[in-house]
């Protein structure tokens, strides 16, 4: 870990929507190679907190510092993506691999290779050619993680990646994330309700209660 040079640092930051702060006084650091689980009840502000750290939600007070040129791989809640789109698992992953491609260029061998490697890292090659809409919850999650990985991020942020999947799939997804954090030195921040599954796998557990960081500690 490199606590002296965090990827993201929040100092007494408030995050919210339409003038209303949902998360208040958040102070924390995101450091490379650390696997952090962010837990809390529904509506406590977990998602707002990670979205605030990524800059998707405005900072209403305090400060958020991001390392210049920080590359973030974001895995949203998979229910937010419309299965109507006729995209395969590979197509979705390729969107991440084209991150640095100018808009007028067609995805080439390099981008395709990066997408394939990302799918391999999440053990998603077997369903890469299937339509995203036809994939199971766990398979979709692997595709979305692969898409985030294909952006070659330093920080991977996942919003409830194991919601609605069976315990075996949940364990398999978590193993993939642990491996990515260990082998690639990725900072992984994961919003979850399933604390029991994270036990022994994450480096740190952050609790959010009523919009405030309630407790931080080793898992």
């Amino acid at each position: 870990m490199n606590a002296a040079n965090p990827l993201v640092r929040a100092i007494e930051a408030d995050f919210g929507y339409q003038g209303r702060a949902v998360v208040r006084g958040a102070s924390l650091e995101v450091v490379p190679g650390e696997f952090v689980a962010l837990a809390g009840s529904n509506g406590s502000g977990k998602t707002t907190l990670v979205r605030g750290l990524l800059g998707l939600v405005p900072v209403m007070a305090g400060r958020v510092e991001r390392r210049p040129g920080l590359r973030v791989g974001y895995v949203p809640q998979r229910e937010t993506l419309d299965p109507l789109y006729p995209l395969t698992g590979f197509d979705v992953t390729l969107l991440g691999a084209c991150r640095d491609l100018p808009f007028w260029r067609v995805a080439g061998a390099a981008e395709r290779g990066r997408a394939r490697a990302a799918l391999a890292a999440t053990q998603g090659e077997s369903f890469a050619r299937s339509r995203y809409a036809t994939l199971s919850g766990g398979q979709r999650q692997r595709v979305l993680i692969a898409r985030a990985l294909a952006t070659e991020p330093a920080l991977l942020v996942l919003d409830e990646p194991t919601a609605g999947v069976d315990p075996q799939t949940e364990a398999a997804i978590l193993e993939v994330l642990v491996r990515l954090a260990r082998e690639r030195g990725l900072a992984v921040w994961m919003v979850t309700h399933h604390l029991h599954a994270t036990t022994g796998r994450v480096d740190r557990l952050v609790h959010v209660r009523d919009g405030r960081l309630a407790r931080e500690g080793a898992a």
Binding site: G55, P76, Y85, L87, V92, L95
Partner: peptide
Amino acid sequence: LASFDPEFARTI
């Protein structure tokens, strides 16, 4: 990107 997943688009 903007149609399928605008939030992801913003993060990249």
